[in-house]
Amino acid sequence: MKDSFIPHHLKLIAIYLFTLSGTIGLAFFFGDLKASSAFDYVDALGEGGMTLITFIWIGFTLLSRPKGKVTNWLFSGLLLMHVSMLLDFLDEFISYDQNNNWLTTIESLPAPVGMVIMSMALYQLYQEQVTINAQLRRTEHYYRDHRLTDFITGLYSAEYMKQQLQRLLSHDCDNFSLIMLDIRQFDHFNRKHGHHHGDRLLREIAQLTLMNIRDTDLACRYASDRLIILLPSSSKELAEGIALDIENSIAHLAFKVGENPQALFQQATLFAEEFNNTQTYHHVLNTMNMHISQLKTQVRSQPQVA
């Protein structure tokens, strides 16, 4: 489970609690409780619901966002809207005398101000998203579904690759290439050094792979120790070139287990192939798997150089 951001927002939570108690205190200080016969429950239900919803929005904002300017803007906008809704809601139970009637007049003021602030916050959120999208290049193509993320490598899973291939194949696409990568002796590594370090190795190799591909390419975790890379509009020669680059960088990765200074060098088997859109994604993936298995058997039958 990802860590919650709540502990970082203690200041904002304090502000919220202060505003909440301030608003309620103010309302009760200047007004008097109505007789229960005068309550309009339908109205109260509607306004109470809106208050609750704005509260939930504030909750999710604080849960999901790290500290920062955009978060502060979102929080302030939502808080002002929340205060307006809350005053409106309290109105149903509290009557103000003539002198203190100003409270009902200004109760709707925070909402529009809050909405303006929210709009500005959303604009900044958009700009932030543009930056994040740039960071997500090579791991995401046009479509986002957080449920398909692989928890070990942070890449998308095979399911996402299947969807992307389906999308590509259903359009009139140019020829595209795929690269499949398989870490050699990964089982052996896991057995010797433990799964924790095995997972870390996978993560680092995933990162290394990302560094070696272009912005238009997409890398996903296939399964176990296999990664798969989609190179749209690319020839086999180009894909083989990139595969060689990845192979070389993995061979030079000096992986360290824990505090042990000894570097462990890994080897990967890679296979690249070009496809056109006459095939189904099943067929495409099966071809890739068959070839990588074949290559692995060939590698195994060659004498190992110590």
């Binding site: 095979a158 398989d182 296939y222 798997n289």
Partner: peptide, 14 residues
């Protein structure tokens, strides 16, 4: 099954 890739990389060979 839909997750045939797990079979391919964990339990089957050529």
């Amino acid at each position: 099954v839909n997750h045939i890739e797990q079979y391919q990389s964990h339990i089957t060979s050529l």
